[in-house]
Design a protein around this nucleic acid. Structure first.
Lengths: 137, 137
DNA sequence: ACGTTAGCTGATACGCAATATCATCGCAAA
DNA sequence: TTTGCGATGATATTGCGTATCAGCTAACGT
């Protein structure tokens, strides 16, 4: 039994709230939806040269407010943006987590992955009750 | 059954590795150990005016390398430093998490806390196998 | 105790991510 | 077509963290 996420339609969410469907927004939405990956704002900017830097941040912020995109703070101070998933804060890799895995002692994590069993450490960072974030659903 | 953490002795770890026990380092170590809280570098700098800005960052980095302090990336791009614990990425509050809690559906989280039962969302961010971080223990 | 030296410190400058500002552009309604 | 407001892109600015460097000091040998 894992944690299920429903991938949202970015442009639909945008238009449903009365926002305009412009070319830059479509390009960013397509990029985020087509790839099973999180992007930094700079990566989006590089992949979409026709879209201005400020517009990248504005569009991302809009998607965040609409709750269809999530923002992941990374170790180097930058952020990763993408459809809601579990993300490694260190390397940005998307990792699927199942509740059963979290019930085991930390050492059991390595056995599930294709990496070696190393002496590693797991940290859980969550958005707590007080913040009342309603990003995803 | 919860996740247990052993709070490390910062200065001891430092000296055991041949680093010097200077006044600025002692002050920062005392601050981190005495308070059940994470600090931003700026907060440490404000609470310890006698310690220079660069030294705050250098000392934190040293503690990180020694594995006695952990670094939490926050939503605004800054970082929180403290002894290893579970931290809300949004407000920085220290939250104790138990494995049993993670096994329940997301909605069950609110019932355990002293906040109201709100429609909230939980994200799990972890350092994954590939990174092989050996911060804590 | 004292001098030597490698490690440490603080002041400053710098790089980079993200935001703010503002004139211009363009979609949508009348 | 005209009008109005949302959206865009260029630029300037903020703020966290790092790099540099001359001066200081804790730790060690004599």
């Amino acid at each position: 039994m894992g944690l299920e996420y429903q991938a949202p339609n970015l442009m639909a969410a945008l238009e449903n709230r009365g926002h305009r469907a412009t070319a830059p927004r479509k390009a960013i939405a397509r990029l985020l939806e087509q790839t099973n990956e999180g992007f930094t704002a700079e990566a989006i900017n590089e992949k979409l040269p026709s879209v201005g830097r400020a517009t990248v941040f504005r569009t991302i912020k809009l998607f965040l407010e609409l709750g269809v995109v999530c923002k992941i703070p990374m170790m180097d101070g930058s952020h990763l943006y993408g459809l809601t998933r579990s993300v490694c804060l260190e390397c940005g890799a998307m990792v699927e987590f199942r509740a059963a895995t979290l019930n085991r002692p930390p050492g059991a994590m390595g056995a599930n992955s294709n990496g070696q069993a190393v002496n590693h450490h797991i940290e859980l960072h969550v958005t707590c009750d007080y913040c009342r974030v309603d990003w995803g659903k």
